[in-house]
Simulated assay, not measured.
Amino acid sequence: MTADAQDGVVVFHIGVRINNFRAVRSWWPVFTAMPRMLEELSQDRGSGLLGYRLLLGGPRLMYVVQYWESQEKLLTYSADQGKEHRPAWAAWNRRVREGRGKVGFWHETFVVPAGAHEAVYVNMPEFGLGEALGVIPVGRRGDRAADRLKTA
């Protein structure tokens, strides 16, 4: 199977690294804010969030991979004063400064044009981009990775 992805997509990674487990005040707010944001986005079909996956990168690193319709929708959500993100981001920034290195934060944004992404799933439930967009048989998009990676 392959992801049913005809258009471009934005892939957004966001995560936290706990540098000091005892500094709960520095990192606990992420565990309460991120699920609220993901729930808010998941309930709003027009938000632009196509799907997400929560991941662990070892005992200190937690992150979310998100798939978005467009960079405009991602940026609109991040700046919207009436949504969960802005107040959570302001509070997070204050805590990070106060925590003096007890918690780390990172995010990466990848704007991927149509035809510049490829996916294959063998003996897997829907996952990643395929979970976000649905899956189709590989042959519909080409039998080889090179066929599926042709840009428009």
Score class of each variant (00 low, 15 high):
95 R>N: 08
18 I>L: 05
99 G>N: 01
120 V>S: 10
45 R>G: 01
49 L>I: 06
97 R>K: 15
121 Y>C: 06
145 A>C: 06
136 I>V: 15
115 G>P: 01
17 R>K: 13
82 G>T: 13
121 Y>E: 05
138 V>Y: 00
46 G>T: 12
79 A>H: 12
27 W>V: 11
14 I>P: 00
20 N>R: 12
127 F>W: 13
75 L>R: 15
86 R>L: 14
88 A>V: 09
24 V>R: 14
47 S>E: 02
132 A>K: 05
90 A>L: 15
52 Y>T: 03
125 P>Y: 04
20 N>L: 12
110 F>A: 06
37 M>F: 02
100 R>C: 07
81 Q>C: 03
123 N>L: 14
92 W>V: 10
66 Q>I: 08
137 P>K: 05
43 Q>Y: 03
87 P>D: 11
58 G>Q: 02
75 L>T: 03
21 F>A: 13
14 I>S: 09
48 G>H: 03
20 N>H: 08
130 G>W: 02
90 A>W: 13
24 V>I: 15
134 G>Y: 04
120 V>F: 10
16 V>Y: 04
45 R>M: 06
14 I>R: 11
125 P>T: 10
31 F>Q: 13
53 R>L: 07
86 R>K: 14
64 V>K: 05
119 A>D: 07
34 M>R: 06
15 G>I: 06
107 H>L: 00
115 G>A: 02
127 F>H: 11
124 M>V: 00
106 W>P: 00
36 R>I: 02
15 G>D: 09
41 L>V: 06
75 L>W: 08
107 H>D: 10
19 N>T: 10
108 E>K: 12
18 I>D: 01
136 I>Y: 01
48 G>C: 03
23 A>V: 07
26 S>N: 11
62 M>G: 13
71 Q>W: 06
127 F>L: 14
99 G>Q: 04
87 P>R: 14
29 P>L: 08
89 W>T: 10
59 P>S: 14
52 Y>L: 06
122 V>R: 14
62 M>T: 11
111 V>I: 07
71 Q>M: 13
56 L>T: 10
54 L>E: 08
42 S>R: 10
122 V>E: 11
87 P>V: 13
37 M>D: 05
124 M>A: 15
107 H>A: 00
56 L>R: 14
60 R>T: 07
